[in-house]
Design a protein around this nucleic acid. Structure first.
Length: 148
DNA sequence: CGTGGCCCCGCTG
DNA sequence: CAGCGGGGCCACG
Protein backbone atom coordinates (compact mmCIF):
# COMPACT_ATOMS: atom_id res chain seq x y z
CA UNK A 1 0.00 0.00 0.00
CA UNK A 2 1.43 3.37 -1.06
CA UNK A 3 0.35 6.76 0.14
CA UNK A 4 0.37 10.20 -1.46
CA UNK A 5 -0.59 13.26 0.53
CA UNK A 6 -2.10 16.46 -0.70
CA UNK A 7 -3.20 19.35 1.46
CA UNK A 8 -6.83 18.30 1.13
CA UNK A 9 -6.74 14.70 -0.01
CA UNK A 10 -4.85 11.52 0.69
CA UNK A 11 -4.44 8.89 -2.03
CA UNK A 12 -3.80 5.24 -1.24
CA UNK A 13 -2.90 2.84 -4.02
CA UNK A 14 -1.57 -0.65 -4.57
CA UNK A 15 0.60 -1.77 -7.46
CA UNK A 16 1.63 -5.09 -8.94
CA UNK A 17 3.32 -5.97 -12.24
CA UNK A 18 3.69 -2.26 -12.97
CA UNK A 19 -0.10 -1.95 -12.95
CA UNK A 20 -2.38 -0.23 -10.49
CA UNK A 21 -4.43 -2.74 -8.54
CA UNK A 22 -6.49 -0.30 -6.49
CA UNK A 23 -6.83 3.40 -5.75
CA UNK A 24 -8.62 4.92 -2.78
CA UNK A 25 -9.20 8.55 -1.80
CA UNK A 26 -9.70 10.01 1.63
CA UNK A 27 -10.39 13.47 3.00
CA UNK A 28 -8.55 12.59 6.17
CA UNK A 29 -4.79 12.72 6.55
CA UNK A 30 -3.08 9.34 6.53
CA UNK A 31 -2.02 7.91 9.85
CA UNK A 32 0.94 6.29 8.13
CA UNK A 33 3.92 8.25 6.81
CA UNK A 34 4.08 9.04 3.07
CA UNK A 35 5.86 6.42 1.00
CA UNK A 36 7.74 6.38 -2.30
CA UNK A 37 6.94 4.54 -5.47
CA UNK A 38 7.39 5.71 -9.08
CA UNK A 39 3.63 6.14 -9.39
CA UNK A 40 3.56 8.53 -6.41
CA UNK A 41 4.98 11.32 -8.53
CA UNK A 42 2.17 10.93 -11.04
CA UNK A 43 -0.46 11.31 -8.35
CA UNK A 44 1.43 14.25 -6.84
CA UNK A 45 1.58 16.01 -10.17
CA UNK A 46 -2.14 15.50 -10.69
CA UNK A 47 -2.93 16.80 -7.21
CA UNK A 48 -0.79 19.85 -7.98
CA UNK A 49 -3.05 20.68 -10.89
CA UNK A 50 -1.13 19.12 -13.76
CA UNK A 51 -2.44 16.89 -16.50
CA UNK A 52 -0.77 13.49 -16.30
CA UNK A 53 -0.58 10.18 -18.12
CA UNK A 54 -1.86 7.51 -15.80
CA UNK A 55 -0.35 4.05 -15.43
CA UNK A 56 -2.18 0.98 -16.64
CA UNK A 57 -4.69 -0.57 -14.27
CA UNK A 58 -5.78 -4.13 -13.67
CA UNK A 59 -9.05 -4.80 -15.48
CA UNK A 60 -9.48 -8.43 -14.45
CA UNK A 61 -12.13 -7.82 -11.83
CA UNK A 62 -14.24 -5.49 -13.96
CA UNK A 63 -17.54 -6.63 -15.43
CA UNK A 64 -18.00 -6.26 -19.19
CA UNK A 65 -20.40 -3.41 -18.55
CA UNK A 66 -17.92 -1.64 -16.29
CA UNK A 67 -15.22 -1.96 -18.94
CA UNK A 68 -17.57 -0.38 -21.44
CA UNK A 69 -18.44 2.49 -19.12
CA UNK A 70 -14.88 3.12 -17.99
CA UNK A 71 -13.59 3.11 -21.54
CA UNK A 72 -15.98 5.96 -22.26
CA UNK A 73 -15.24 7.85 -19.05
CA UNK A 74 -11.47 7.93 -19.63
CA UNK A 75 -12.10 9.87 -22.84
CA UNK A 76 -13.71 12.80 -20.99
CA UNK A 77 -11.11 15.56 -21.28
CA UNK A 78 -9.41 17.06 -18.25
CA UNK A 79 -11.42 19.94 -16.86
CA UNK A 80 -14.66 18.93 -18.59
CA UNK A 81 -17.75 17.16 -17.35
CA UNK A 82 -20.36 14.85 -18.84
CA UNK A 83 -23.69 13.77 -17.42
CA UNK A 84 -24.55 10.17 -16.56
CA UNK A 85 -26.96 10.26 -19.46
CA UNK A 86 -24.30 11.47 -21.87
CA UNK A 87 -22.00 8.64 -20.80
CA UNK A 88 -24.84 6.20 -21.36
CA UNK A 89 -25.24 7.57 -24.89
CA UNK A 90 -21.48 7.35 -25.48
CA UNK A 91 -21.64 3.57 -24.96
CA UNK A 92 -24.70 3.24 -27.16
CA UNK A 93 -27.14 2.62 -24.30
CA UNK A 94 -28.91 5.97 -23.89
CA UNK A 95 -31.35 4.64 -21.31
CA UNK A 96 -28.79 2.93 -19.12
CA UNK A 97 -27.79 6.08 -17.22
CA UNK A 98 -28.75 4.55 -13.92
CA UNK A 99 -26.65 1.50 -14.56
CA UNK A 100 -23.80 3.84 -15.52
CA UNK A 101 -24.10 5.42 -12.08
CA UNK A 102 -23.95 1.97 -10.49
CA UNK A 103 -20.84 1.08 -12.45
CA UNK A 104 -19.11 4.32 -11.45
CA UNK A 105 -20.08 3.82 -7.83
CA UNK A 106 -17.81 0.78 -7.81
CA UNK A 107 -14.93 2.41 -9.66
CA UNK A 108 -11.77 0.79 -8.25
CA UNK A 109 -9.51 3.47 -9.79
CA UNK A 110 -10.76 6.96 -8.92
CA UNK A 111 -8.69 9.74 -10.54
CA UNK A 112 -7.35 7.27 -13.11
CA UNK A 113 -10.86 6.57 -14.30
CA UNK A 114 -12.18 10.10 -13.86
CA UNK A 115 -15.65 9.33 -12.56
CA UNK A 116 -15.59 12.73 -10.80
CA UNK A 117 -16.14 14.26 -14.26
CA UNK A 118 -19.53 12.56 -14.50
CA UNK A 119 -22.17 14.77 -12.97
CA UNK A 120 -25.91 15.15 -12.64
CA UNK A 121 -27.98 16.62 -15.48
CA UNK A 122 -28.68 19.73 -13.44
CA UNK A 123 -25.08 20.33 -12.51
CA UNK A 124 -23.92 22.54 -10.89
CA UNK A 125 -27.04 22.78 -8.71
CA UNK A 126 -26.70 19.03 -8.22
CA UNK A 127 -23.19 17.63 -8.57
CA UNK A 128 -24.32 13.99 -8.46
CA UNK A 129 -23.13 11.27 -6.16
CA UNK A 130 -19.62 10.19 -5.25
CA UNK A 131 -18.02 7.74 -2.86
CA UNK A 132 -16.80 7.99 -0.24
CA UNK A 133 -17.76 11.67 -0.14
CA UNK A 134 -19.20 14.14 -2.68
CA UNK A 135 -16.87 16.73 -1.16
CA UNK A 136 -13.98 14.89 -2.80
CA UNK A 137 -15.73 15.28 -6.15
CA UNK A 138 -15.91 19.04 -5.65
CA UNK A 139 -12.24 19.20 -4.71
CA UNK A 140 -11.23 17.30 -7.84
CA UNK A 141 -13.39 19.34 -10.20
CA UNK A 142 -12.11 22.56 -8.65
CA UNK A 143 -8.57 21.28 -9.02
CA UNK A 144 -9.25 20.80 -12.73
CA UNK A 145 -10.61 24.32 -13.06
CA UNK A 146 -14.26 23.39 -13.49
CA UNK A 147 -16.42 26.37 -12.58
CA UNK A 148 -19.46 25.93 -10.42
C1' DC B 1 -40.15 22.69 -4.91
C1' DG B 2 -41.72 17.16 -4.44
C1' DT B 3 -43.25 12.72 -6.58
C1' DG B 4 -43.60 8.81 -9.47
C1' DG B 5 -42.73 6.18 -13.66
C1' DC B 6 -39.04 4.44 -16.16
C1' DC B 7 -34.66 1.88 -17.34
C1' DC B 8 -30.55 -1.16 -16.65
C1' DC B 9 -27.10 -3.67 -14.01
C1' DG B 10 -25.71 -6.68 -10.35
C1' DC B 11 -26.82 -8.83 -6.08
C1' DT B 12 -29.77 -11.88 -3.43
C1' DG B 13 -33.02 -15.57 -2.43
C1' DC C 1 -35.82 -17.06 -12.37
C1' DA C 2 -38.03 -12.86 -9.86
C1' DG C 3 -37.41 -8.92 -6.94
C1' DC C 4 -35.16 -4.93 -5.58
C1' DG C 5 -32.08 -1.07 -4.84
C1' DG C 6 -29.25 2.52 -6.62
C1' DG C 7 -23.94 8.22 -7.42
C1' DG C 8 -30.31 9.37 -12.61
C1' DC C 9 -33.81 11.69 -15.60
C1' DC C 10 -37.97 13.80 -16.92
C1' DA C 11 -42.78 15.04 -16.84
C1' DC C 12 -46.14 16.57 -14.09
C1' DG C 13 -48.56 19.27 -10.47
Amino acid sequence: MWIVRHHKLTVFFTEENNMLQSVRLSLLPASLPPSYHPFCEIFENYLNGKQVSWPAYNQELLTPFQKLVFAAVVTIPYGETRTYKEVASMIGRPKAYRAVAQALKHNPFPLVIPCHRVVSSNFPQDIGGYTPDPEIKKILLTLEGVLF
